[in-house]
Write a protein that binds this DNA or RNA. Structure first.
Lengths: 254, 254
DNA sequence: CGCGACGTTGAGTTCGGTCAATCAGCGTGG
DNA sequence: CCACGCTGATTGACCGAACTCAACGTCGCG
């Protein structure tokens, strides 16, 4: 039980980083019933058109949402890291419209839709927080369209690395920003609409420029400002780091 | 007043095509206070980082949501047609993260956030419908990532044409599907991540194949099945045509 | 020690971009 | 009525970023 509360904490943190929830509401989130599961690398755990009765929360690892073309080319449309609920939207739309796959060995929590709905019905501010949370994911999606639609390979990858650094809340240590990001170059390619060969060359060019490198399943950003510039990155859309007095609540005050 | 109710009807239709709302709730939507405005072609009516206190509903015309790169290259991340609320998400997230621009002379309705919030607070099923509606837009966004990330020019444009045909609820007449779609080739290019030159060539190739043509601000699809195949189009994600007994309501029964 | 997954490299190809010119339609004003 | 200018569509020649194919290296692991 205590274990589950601890596993739910990152999800609550994500919600409260943008929405204002009172003690009782936070408690209700932490008390959500859940069932932990481990998913192996490259294993789908939500399939297309599947009618689901629960939503997932990532506890550890990385989850990719996949879109596919007829030809079998895969495109990752979203990356989800611990604290994210990749299919929170399934609470209002239970038919899965895309595949969820673990990109590395991943631990997820399954929470029944009924539980989400009950807490949302009882606490309108929580329903609001869920909606807002989904909108953050949509804002990221919107950026990804720009990324794959209009930027060249170097800019694309730089942008993605900046985004992930912010989402992991990686903090500079000794002038460098470093964080674990255990994805393969092929997965990076699927996320950026490139081929793994070109990702490889682009990463080498970023390293050569002294901007960043990805190795040993870790990202090392040597020149944050430079990478931001090359990646045309503007962190606003992520809505990270909202001061606590600006976090939103549109239902009655907390 | 009656005019405004009529203008709000397409928005209500869009909501009720996926969510089940009772008489009272529907009435509350139609009674939303609003202020009509006309926007000229290529005019921004929501600017970046603007703090907005209202959301818009498209009554007539087409609205594009734009993302921009530093270099001034523009990417349309969403197209909105009558009945859509391009920035319904601003109800929970009032800071505009992208530009809204009219792609043709467009009539919009501005509805104060306060009104949306009041009706959502009073009728949980309406709040749920809003959330669900935003999720449909997110599903479209997700498809767009796949489209620009992994499909070639012909497939991209075919897919977009299929999507718009479905969203306009265009019905076949005499073996052809036809609908008004007053966008320029340059705007099509911004939506598909191509250049206008290449859009032109691709459209000609689609016409040459007897699949579809775009002229006089209208789309004419001569071979729907063929276009669907070329565009790798699967309409499921749009959640159009949901039979009335399958429309969702997770709060207490209607 | 051999296999599989991942990363790296090279050579050749192609899809789509760039640049620039031309054309067609249309509203405006002389 | 026609010249003008604007916007959008069309075309051609050339270019280059990213893809394809195929080989090879490297590391971890059973």
């Amino acid at each position: 039980m205590l274990q589950k509360r601890r596993d739910l904490q990152p999800f609550l943190d994500r919600l409260t980083s943008r929405s204002r929830l009172n003690e009782q509401e936070q408690e209700a989130i932490l008390a959500l019933p859940s069932h932990a599961a481990q998913v192996q690398t490259n294993r789908d755990f939500v399939r297309l058109d599947q009618a689901v009765d629960h939503a997932c929360i990532v506890v550890d690892g990385i989850v990719g949402r996949f879109g596919q073309t007829c030809e079998g080319a895969r495109q990752i449309t979203a990356l989800h890291i611990p604290g994210d609920a990749p299919d929170l939207h399934s609470v209002v739309q239970p038919k899965a419209r895309s595949v969820l796959q673990a990109l590395t060995t991943t631990t997820i929590l399954r929470v029944p839709h009924g539980a989400f709905r009950a807490v949302a019905a009882r606490y309108p501010a929580v329903a609001e927080a869920f909606w807002r949370d989904c909108m953050v994911d949509a804002a990221i999606l919107s950026q990804w369209v720009v990324n794959v639609g209009r930027r060249d390979a170097k800019t694309r990858i730089a942008h993605l690395l900046c985004e992930m650094a912010m989402r992991y809340r990686a903090r500079p240590e000794g002038g460098e920003v470093t964080f674990d990001f255990p994805v393969t170059q092929a997965q990076l390619a699927d996320a950026t609409g490139l081929t793994s060969v070109h990702v490889n060359r682009t990463l080498m060019s970023l390293r050569h420029d002294g901007l960043a490198e990805v190795c040993q399943r870790r990202v090392r950003i040597m020149d944050w400002d430079g990478l931001v510039k090359v990646g045309e990155f503007d962190a606003d859309y992520l809505q990270a780091d909202i001061p606590s007095d600006e976090r939103m609540r549109i239902v009655e005050a907390a």
